[in-house]
Design a protein around this nucleic acid. Structure first.
Lengths: 248, 248
DNA sequence: ATGATTGCAAGAGCACTGCTCTCTATGAGT
DNA sequence: ACTCATAGAGAGCAGTGCTCTTGCAATCAT
């Protein structure tokens, strides 16, 4: 029961209340309740990890009974999918913001900022990062909607490479030893980084993979005994990767 | 009940039986039962993933009651830890075997074989790979015993770099721009790859990270829409990494 | 050989989970 | 004002990890 039960009811503009008890249209209530559920679930995941997320606990915190939750999310996986979608967008937004702060001409600085943005977000939200880049939930096939949300980070990285290529017109690239068309979706990749030669795609792929690989290794404890200062180590890796892809 | 219940009992050397029903000492029975439990658990994980592993199902398959299982593994996590330990050793052994098949002088071939060994094992045992390199179970701190098992693969990779460095005595390495002593456990690393200059460690780290990063990305679905032929892509990546670390 | 001790498994039970079903108020649309 | 869809309540099912007690059987010491 909310406090409004006693005395004169307050309307939402007075209380700043966003709870579904405030007067709202049915549709508004529904999205508000959905958001409240996701918010609580998010916090619980942040606290105790995905595997320990229980719908019953979420419902308890919201003061409702567990069965009522199924009006909003048909299954636990559906709730998780919604959270994954949100998390991808949050990570993407964080990286975009970090990268946007650097002068356009400084492609290496932008690369550094974007990579650091990934790591920063991951360290701030380790369990949500795991949700995205850890073991996928069994039987889970990413709905296409989450797939496009997932591309926000790679889009940023691709644009940096593209801008860098545009800056210095003639790139003295090594001769391609393999035709990447044999194993990469060149038609899909090319539009995202115009100006970058397909011969460079493998290195770009390595850079992308290494950024997330390093963050995962750090978070999942695989660097224990090897690395003493993760921040400096990551900086060094990111710089070396910038060299690899040939950033200015 | 095993077949030996009827007719003349056969001893284990005749049947090749490893079931605890065969006549054995108490200690032998215990390890046999432990092994049986792990074997069933392994199969169930391979089938349905870690999160769907249930101790009760394991006990059911073994024809015993669930509480009996706790004589062997005090908790679910303890069973998982045992499985993780075994998996690390299996992966390590597989990589060692693959790498050993290549002539010692062919360091690039050995590198390729080792990396392919990782990917091959991961694809053959995706759920166990996830157990090792996916999201760690929450609250799980790797017991030191699993840590050393985990180093088997990196030991192989380090030795390849070391042997390569020994072959061509004077390496024309670029000047180190950073002192890796600031962020790497150089004292622990150096003995594992004698002859390799610390300035090369960052690249070695990238190579190691990328190999597992690429395998994880492939298995966890992050390359969907980007890569069309995973085997060829992995080959290209491995080759590029060999270039990066300067293999012959 | 006999008696004490120890180890293994069974069974019942607790607190929890995801999820389904039926039922009842209450708000929305006619 | 009367329908009617909807959000939530409540009970319940099948499953989970784990604990505790009880009985039996193999081992050990005498």
């Amino acid at each position: 029961m909310s406090p409004e039960t006693f005395g004169a009811p307050l309307s939402s503009w007075q209380t700043g209340d966003v709870s579904p008890a405030a007067a709202k249209s049915r549709a508004q209530q529904r999205v508000a309740q959905s958001a409240a559920i996701k918010e609580v679930a998010r916090r619980l995941i942040a606290d105790k990890g995905v595997t320990n997320l229980s719908l019953r606990e979420v419902s308890r915190e919201l003061g409702m009974v567990s069965s009522a939750l199924y009006r909003y999310f048909a299954t636990r996986d559906e709730l998780l999918t919604a959270l994954i979608y949100d998390a991808y967008n949050e990570l993407g937004a964080a990286v975009e913001r970090a990268e946007a702060r650097v002068a356009r001409g400084d492609t290496r600085g932008r690369w550094r900022a974007a990579c650091l943005g990934v790591r920063r977000w991951a360290r701030a939200n380790p369990h949500e990062y795991s949700l995205l880049y850890g073991t996928p939930v069994p039987g889970y096939v990413a709905p296409s909607v989450t797939v496009v949300a997932a591309t926000r980070v790679t889009t940023v990285l691709a644009r940096i490479l593209s801008d860098d290529a545009a800056q210095r017109r003639a790139r003295p690239s090594r001769a391609p030893t393999r035709d990447v068309r044999d194993f990469l979706q060149v038609d899909a990749l090319a539009p995202t980084m115009p100006g970058v030669e397909p011969a460079q795609y493998v290195r770009a792929l390595i850079a992308w993979t290494t950024v997330f690989g390093a963050v995962s290794f750090e978070l999942f404890g695989h660097y224990v005994g090897t690395v003493t200062n993760y921040s400096r180590m990551f900086d060094a890796v990111v710089d070396e990767l910038a060299d690899l892809v040939g950033l200015a």
